[in-house]
């Protein structure tokens, strides 16, 4: 009889243990050794101990270590293009037309990658063929989407396009966080392949005439 009691108790304990393991879909459940399951190391997006690490340079010194994951000012990655220095204002926009495209003679081999970047980041509004007919444009969700194949944009300088992608323009936000400088130039080169060949030399003020500049 005793044996039966022991077995019964044991099975109840097992059932209880199992039940405690599942806590619904809003609960990640239990883990062996949570120190290992959830990283203690400095991982992306992981919280960190604010008494040890500070992101505010003013709190530097003492026990706090200053770290904000930003590159040191004035440094660039090896092989990276130089920073774009024109300011985000009307003067900067006007001067941007004179900025030289460093990838002017981009190899054709890079076009498929440029196309891929265009499809991911731009085609959602500007359309697969840059005619301003992407899914968000045709559904009327985002207004003011440029038809990049129109004469206005065919005549626009590379530098002005770069300025607009970097800082945003009209209803378009800045794409500096999604495309690095080289990728932005690659995308511009790809857009050029979608535009019709220019018929005549455009008037040199064509780009500055365009007046939908944001943040004047």
């Amino acid at each position: 009889m005793k044996k039966i009691k022991i077995i019964g108790l044991f099975s109840v304990a097992v059932a209880a243990l199992t039940m405690s393991g599942c806590g619904g879909k809003n609960n990640p459940g239990h883990t062996y050794m949570p120190d290992m399951g959830y990283s203690r190391a400095y991982e992306t997006y992981a919280g960190h101990d604010s008494t040890v690490i500070t992101t505010n340079p003013a709190d530097r010194g003492g026990k706090a270590i200053f770290y904000n994951a930003m590159p040191v000012a004035g440094t660039i990655k090896r092989g990276e293009l130089f920073p774009y220095t024109l300011p985000n204002d009307t003067t900067g926009y006007r001067l941007s037309a004179k900025v030289e495209n460093p990838l002017k003679n981009m190899s054709v081999i890079m076009l498929p990658e440029a196309e891929r970047l265009y499809m991911i980041n731009c085609a959602i509004c500007h359309g697969e063929k840059a005619a301003g007919d992407g899914p968000l444009a045709t559904s009327g969700k985002v207004p003011g989407i440029a038809n990049l194949t129109s004469p206005l944009y065919a005549a626009m300088a590379d530098g002005t396009m770069f300025h607009s992608i970097t800082y945003g323009k009209g209803f378009m936000g800045s794409y500096a966080s999604q495309l690095d400088r080289k990728q932005r130039w690659m995308v511009i080169n790809y857009v050029r392949t979608l535009q019709p060949a220019p018929e005549a030399k455009p008037a040199d003020n064509a780009a500055s005439q365009d007046s939908t500049v944001k943040k004047g």
Partner: peptide, 21 residues
């Protein structure tokens, strides 16, 4: 039955399939 349940529960520790916070 007990062995099956215990082993499955132990394997499930640290796994969070269908987790939907």
């Amino acid at each position: 039955i007990g062995g099956y349940v215990v082993i499955n529960a132990a394997i499930g520790l640290g796994r969070q399939q269908n987790y939907e916070p």
